[in-house]
Design a protein around this nucleic acid. Structure first.
Lengths: 207, 207
DNA sequence: AATTTCTTGTGAATTTAGGCACAAGGCTAT
DNA sequence: ATAGCCTTGTGCCTAAATTCACAAGAAATT
C-alpha cells in the first residue's frame, strides 16, 4: 500500500488501543483479533484495521494481531519510547490533582517543574517538587534542562500570558485546562480540555 | 433554507462561541461580526456562519450579530435554560478539584451529590455537601430528586461498575475521567476526558 | 496437495465536515 | 430615491473520515 498521512482521528484512537493492549498483555494474552479489540475500545473492526494500516501491516491473516508487537508499534508511532518532561502552571485545585495522578509517570510523562504566582504557595513542597514562582518560569525551565509539554491549570484570565511564557521558554506542546481559547503559533501544538464545554455538550444531548 | 441535523462538530464549537459572547456582553459590547467572533474562537468566519445557520438566521446583513440574541439562541440550543443536577463519584484527587471549581455553578450546573467508597471519606463534609457511600448511590440520587449528569472520577478498575449504577439510578449522561473505555446503552450519552490520551496525542505531534 | 476456515488489508463507495465565493439584504449618505 | 458599502446566508465544491465488502493470505484439516 502507498502509506498516507495518519488522520487526526486515528491518532486520537491509538492511545485507546494501546491502553487496552497493555491490559491484555498484563493478563498474559498474546493474540487479539480486530473484532475483539475494537469492541473493547468502542469502535468497529473495519475502523480499527484501517487505523492500524496507516502504521504498517502487523497482523496475521486468519489469526489476528500479536499483542506485544502492536504495543511496540503504537508506542513507537506515538513517540512513547522516550520520557517527556512536563511543567504544570497553576497550583490551585486542579494542578495538584494532576500532580498526584499516578498515571502520567507510568506512561513516560515526568513532571519536572510546577509553578504558581501566589507567594503563599511559592517554595512549598508538593509531591516531591517545590512550587516555583511563575515569574521565573523561563529560568526554572532552563535549569531543569527544558520541558516538552506545558500544562496550564491557571484561571482563564492569565492563561494566554502563561502560554506565551511557556512558548518563550521553548515549550512546543501545551495542554490547556483554562476555560479560554488560546492562540499559539503554528509550530506549537495545543490541546484544550474544557470541563464546562463537555457538560454543555452533554446538556445538548439531554435536551 | 431546509434546516438540517446539527453536526457533532458544530455542537462542540457552540460552547466556545457562547463563552466569548458572554465575555463580550460583560464588556458591554452589543454587536459582533462573524469575522471577529471566529477569530477569538480559533476558527474562520465561514465556519462560524455555517454553524449558526443550523440554529436559524440571527444576523443582520451589513451589520453583524446581536450579542444578547446570539447568547440567548445558543443557550437555548444547548439546553442551558434549565439547571442540570450533577453527581460526582470518586472523591480522590480529581473529584474534590471539580467540586471546588466555580465555573460549573455559574453556567447552570449544580452538584447535588458526591460519593466515595472509602469509609474514611464517607460522612465527611466537602464544599457544602456530605460524601455519601457509593453503595447507596441509587437511594441518595432518588432522595435528591434525581440527577441529570454523572461525573466519574474513580480509578479505572471500578468505573464501569459505577457507570452501571448511575444508569440504573436514572442518569442519562456521563462524563468519565477514568482512563478506561466505558460501555453504555445507546440512550445514555457518554463523554470521555482522558488526560493520558491527551498527552500521548501531544507526544505524537512532538515526534 | 487440496480444501476449508479464518481474519487481515484495502480499494471503492458513502457520509460528514470544511471552505469558497457570491447573491441577498440591510444600513448610510448624498 | 438611489447608489455605495458591508456583512450575512448558503449553494456548491473540496477534503476528510467512515463504512462496506471482498480479495489475499495464513493456518488447520482432510
Amino acid at each position: 500500500m502507498k502509506r498516507k498521512r495518519i488522520p487526526q482521528t486515528t491518532i486520537a484512537r491509538l492511545p485507546l488501543y494501546l491502553r487496552y493492549l497493555l491490559k491484555l498483555a498484563r493478563k498474559g494474552l498474546r493474540i487479539i483479533s480486530s473484532y475483539e479489540l475494537a469492541e473493547h475500545v468502542g469502535t468497529n473492526a473495519a475502523q480499527l484495521r484501517k487505523d492500524l494500516s496507516y502504521l504498517g501491516e502487523f497482523g496475521t491473516r486468519g489469526v489476528g494481531y500479536d499483542v506485544a508487537e502492536l504495543i511496540r508499534q503504537i508506542s513507537k508511532c506515538l513517540g512513547l519510547t522516550k520520557e517527556w518532561k512536563i511543567a504544570i502552571v497553576g497550583m490551585g485545585k486542579l494542578g495538584p490533582a494532576l500532580l498526584g495522578y499516578k498515571g502520567f509517570e507510568q506512561e513516560g510523562f515526568k513532571i519536572v517543574a510546577i509553578f504558581d504566582k501566589n507567594p503563599k504557595k511559592i517554595g512549598k513542597k508538593m509531591g516531591n517538587l517545590v512550587v516555583s514562582d511563575v515569574t521565573n518560569l523561563k529560568e526554572v525551565i532552563e535549569k531543569v534542562g527544558g520541558v516538552d509539554i506545558g500544562i496550564i491549570t491557571t484561571p482563564a484570565s492569565v492563561a494566554q500570558k502563561v502560554a506565551n511564557q511557556l512558548i518563550d521558554a521553548g515549550v512546543r506542546a501545551i495542554l490547556n485546562f483554562a476555560p479560554v481559547t488560546l492562540g499559539v503559533p503554528s509550530n506549537v501544538v495545543l490541546r484544550q480540555v474544557d470541563l464546562t464545554t463537555e457538560l454543555q455538550i452533554l446538556s445538548f444531548h439531554l435536551t
